[in-house]
């Protein structure tokens, strides 16, 4: 699904078009830039809802928002790496996985 500025403002009722433009220019959202204006997809809309939640539900100041977004982006980056690593380990034989499990528990200090 693709959305224009007007679609986005209609879907996310708690945002004004002015706010949306400011947040895009701040780089909080990075919609695709097409000839007749920005094009948002579903992840942009979900991220916009997150920005609204941070400001309204969590009552965070505007200057705290980029910090939180950056931390959330880093968490998702790390989670993606961790998932890829787990998927790679999963490809291995049971013997290898058992060895990795043991080495992991040792690294965590649970086993010697």
């Amino acid at each position: 699904m693709k959305f224009t500025e007007a679609d986005v403002v209609a879907r996310v009722e708690t945002v004004t078009v002015e706010e949306l433009r400011i947040w895009v220019s701040e780089g909080w959202l990075v919609p695709e830039s097409a000839d007749d204006g920005p094009v948002f997809d579903e992840i942009d809309v979900a991220r916009l809802r997150l920005v609204c939640a941070l400001r309204q539900d969590l009552d965070l100041a505007d200057d705290a928002v980029p910090t939180i977004l950056s931390l959330i982006d880093q968490i998702h980056g790390l989670r993606a790496e961790l998932k890829a690593l787990a998927a790679a380990v999963d490809q291995e034989s049971e013997t290898t996985r058992a060895r990795i499990r043991k080495a992991y528990r040792t690294a965590k200090g649970w086993e010697r």
Partner: peptide, 23 residues
């Protein structure tokens, strides 16, 4: 049902908002 950003951030194949800077 609210849809949370994490469902998109975790599934987005382009990962364009994900950051792996600084590891």
């Amino acid at each position: 049902e609210p849809t949370f950003y994490r469902e998109y951030a975790g599934a987005d194949p382009s990962g364009r908002y994900r950051s792996t800077a600084g590891h």
